[in-house]
Amino acid sequence: MPENSYEPKIIGYLCNWCSYAGADGAGLARIEYPPNVKIIRVPCSGRVSPEMVLRTFMQGADGVMVLGCHIGDCHYGNGNHRTAKRFPVYTELMDYMGIPKERLWVQWVSASEGPIFAEVVAEFTERLRTMPPMRGKLEVG
């Protein structure tokens, strides 16, 4: 590994029914992926508020993933429709906040997509490695 590289710290908010189960599926199938992501279980990706994402960056996360069910497969019917509407807007505001929008990844991963989950983590980790670390926490007055 080149000397200047670092291990990005990633927090993943995964919906309980699809993406969390998908991550479990990657485990069951023993599909290897980078250990950088720490997963936090939420009932639905619709539970994840923009503020939570911002706070996560403030705590020094280099990247945040929000993963939910594919549109149409939401356990709660349409909770993920909110996610799909919220985050494109939020992403547009990230540059303004001084956080490159590439640091947030919102994607759909179903319960049967263990391999896709592993791919998503690997790709996101690689992407973050090409960016400088956030280093430390942000303090907001």
Binding site: V42, P43, C44, G46, R47, V48, S49, P50, E51, M52, H75, Y76, G79, R82, R86
Partner: peptide, 20 residues
């Protein structure tokens, strides 16, 4: 599901066991 929690602008809804 907690969708309402993330939507509430005045942080007036709590989802028990998945609170902020």
């Amino acid at each position: 599901c907690g969708t309402c929690v993330a939507a509430c602008p005045s942080k007036s809804i709590t989802l028990h066991h998945f609170t902020d």
